[in-house]
Computed example of a mutant assay.
Amino acid sequence: MKTRLVLGLLAMMLPSGAAMAQGLVALRDGASLAFLGLTFIDTSTEGAYNPVRADETARLVMLQDLVQERFETEGFAMLDLAPVAPDLAPIKNPADCYGCELRIAAKLDADYVVVGEVQKVSNLILSMNLVMRDVATGEVVRARAVDIRSNTDDSWQRGMHYIFKTHFFVEG
């Protein structure tokens, strides 16, 4: 919960649009990236009473594939996580593990690490965030949180595309 609050505040403080493009840290061409995935957090009343929904599980996989493909398209060398699978196995949420994402990515000799979350507040309101850190310095080089309305494949994809467009891959 604390991570989402910090990310939300960070996202609100960042400028938007073309002005933001000039303030972003330049990413290294061909840099290696450890994408540790996205975590689904259901804090809705529905989630408190019902089991995990198959459609939401499928959406999370769809969104992870979307993130992976976009970073590959942008020229990042995506690292295989198999060597750190034992380190990742006990971790419930790599986006909220007191810096474990940096330690795990360092084992892979990654330049950057990316983690994210999708939080279901209700079946109408969801929040998603994506964070990219420089592994060597621990510095956050990209971070964005967005709230989306409706719980569909299309709304999840639109939310992630918005994160990409407004902060991760901004065209100046």
Rank of each mutant, 00 (worst) to 15 (best):
K2I: 04
T3Y: 09
T3R: 14
R4W: 03
L5G: 01
L9K: 08
L10E: 14
M13E: 07
S16R: 10
A18F: 08
A19C: 10
M20E: 01
A21E: 11
A21Y: 09
G23M: 11
L24E: 13
L24H: 02
A26R: 09
A31N: 05
L36S: 06
L38T: 08
E46D: 08
V52T: 10
D55N: 06
D55T: 11
R59K: 07
M62H: 05
Q64N: 03
V67E: 15
V67G: 09
T73C: 06
L79W: 11
P83L: 09
D87Y: 06
D96V: 14
D96Q: 13
C97S: 10
Y98L: 06
R103G: 11
K107D: 10
L108F: 06
D111L: 02
Y112S: 13
Y112M: 06
V113C: 09
V118Y: 03
K120W: 00
K120Q: 15
V121F: 09
L124S: 12
N129T: 02
R133S: 05
T137A: 03
R142W: 15
A143R: 09
A145G: 14
I148R: 04
I148F: 05
N151I: 00
T152E: 02
D153S: 03
W156K: 00
R158Q: 14
M160L: 15
F164N: 07
F164M: 01
F169A: 11
E171R: 05
G172Y: 02
